[in-house]
């Protein structure tokens, strides 16, 4: 754990935990939530989150 106090060390020490399925699953989840909140313009979804988007100052049509 002595090497863990650099950015490189953090990446190295996280590597055993970062199996491909876990990384894929994590990224997919984050992408879904992030994309839904930030970019989806599908009218139903968009209208439902309309106030939240304005409240967070995210761009809106």
């Amino acid at each position: 754990m002595a090497t863990a106090n650099t950015v490189h060390g953090r990446i190295e020490s996280a590597r055993p935990a970062l199996t491909t399925p876990r990384v894929a699953l994590g990224l997919a989840l984050l992408a879904i939530v992030g994309f839904t909140l930030l970019f989806v313009q599908e009218p139903l979804v968009h209208d439902s989150l309309h106030n939240a988007r304005h409240a967070a100052g995210i761009t809106c049509h």
């Binding site: 984050l30 909140l37 989150l49 309309h50 106030n51």
Partner: peptide, 19 residues
Amino acid sequence: APLISVAGGVFWGLLLGVV
């Protein structure tokens, strides 16, 4: 819709916290 926006606010905080 305003209620869903409240949930949207909660998820916004969660997303920012995790990332």
